[in-house]
Computed example of a mutant assay.
Amino acid sequence: MPGLLRGVARTAVIAGTASAVNGRVQRRQAERFAGRDAQIAAERQQAYAAAQAPPAPAPAAPPAASPVDPIQQLKDLAELKAQGILTEDEFAAQKARILA
C-alpha cells in the first residue's frame, strides 16, 4: 500500500505542476496578445471613423475663360508683326488658328 500512495502522490504533484505551468503560460500569452489585439482594434476603429467621415468638399471648378474677341486677337497679332516679334509665317499660322 505505501507504493500505491507514493504513486498517487507523485501523480498529484506532476499534475499540479503541469497545471501551474499551463496557467502561467496562458497568462503570459494573454498579456502578449493583449497589446496586439488593442492595436488591431485601434486600427479598425480609425478605418471605421475614416469611412464614416463626410467626404471632403469637391474643389471649385476653375472659372470659365472669358470669351476673347477674335478681332481683338487679330489686332494684337498685327501689332506683334509690326513690331517685328512675329514673322509672316507665324502671323499667318496664328491668324488661321483664330479664324478656324
Rank of each mutant, 00 (worst) to 15 (best):
R27F: 04
P55W: 00
P2E: 15
A50K: 06
Q72P: 07
A42Y: 05
A56D: 12
L99M: 10
A12W: 06
P67A: 15
R28W: 10
Q39H: 09
A93D: 12
R6F: 12
A20W: 06
R36D: 11
A38H: 05
V8N: 04
P54G: 09
R27G: 06
R36E: 12
D76C: 03
P59A: 10
L77W: 02
S19P: 02
Q29V: 13
A30C: 06
D69Q: 03
A30S: 11
I85D: 03
Q73F: 05
A92Q: 10
I98Y: 02
A30R: 15
P54N: 07
A30T: 08
A49W: 02
L99A: 00
A78I: 04
I40H: 09
D37H: 09
P57F: 04
R6L: 15
L80G: 04
Q46W: 00
F33S: 12
F91Y: 06
A64K: 02
A9Q: 10
V21C: 07
G23C: 03
K81P: 01
L74P: 08
L74C: 04
R97A: 15
P62V: 02
Q46V: 05
L5G: 13
A65H: 00
A49N: 10
T17Y: 06
R32S: 07
L74G: 03
A56Y: 01
F91P: 06
A53V: 00
Q83I: 02
Q39T: 09
E88Q: 14
A47C: 03
G7C: 08
M1E: 13
